[in-house]
């Protein structure tokens, strides 16, 4: 089936089965590889993108549900220079293997769009993405650093 999908401000035509998860449309059809595959069941958060500004796990979001919504991926975050959260991530030296970090950042952007100055509890509640390298404390510090800078 043919779908029109709005990603990072541009419209794309894709011809895939309607149950194809947004993750695989982004990666295999649009070549946007910054969004990662981790679990396929919306538990780990490596595939987090924004759907109308809301952090969404794209591995479990079918392309047929994307009609009329605006999708934002990590690639669009730094279009005009690094986002303050990306700067904070570098300043706090967050990434280790780095595989989960784009999803973590997308979750953090969504958090800061709702809450200017998140408390530790806010961060605990919003940041449920898994990091197997265990960078959690630096992620927390980076979110606070970015919140202060924004």
């Amino acid at each position: 089936m043919a779908f029109k999908i709005r990603v990072n401000g541009a419209e794309h035509d894709v011809d895939v089965d309607g149950d194809t998860p947004l993750l695989w449309v982004l990666r295999d059809n649009l070549g946007l590889n910054g969004t990662k595959f981790g679990c396929g069941i919306a538990v780990c958060g490596a595939c987090t993108v924004h759907v109308d500004g809301v952090a969404t796990r794209s591995c479990s979001f079918p392309v047929e549900a994307t009609e009329g919504v605006e999708i934002t991926t990590i690639e669009a975050l730094s279009k005009d220079g690094p986002h303050p959260l990306q700067d904070a991530w570098v300043a706090e030296d967050v990434p280790q293997c780095g595989y989960c970090q784009t999803g973590q950042i997308m979750a953090a952007v969504a958090l800061l769009s709702q809450t200017d100055d998140p408390s530790d509890n806010d961060i605990d509640a919003a940041m449920t993405n898994i990091c197997r390298c265990g960078t959690y404390n630096r992620i927390r510090a980076a979110i606070k650093r970015a919140a202060a800078a924004m």
Partner: peptide, 21 residues
């Protein structure tokens, strides 16, 4: 000293195995 690979790991450029094309 901060990591040299941090920048490309926060904007999606870093190429992992799954990203090979």
């Amino acid at each position: 000293t901060n990591r040299l690979d941090a920048a490309e790991k926060v904007d999606g450029r870093a190429e992992f195995g799954v990203d090979v094309n």
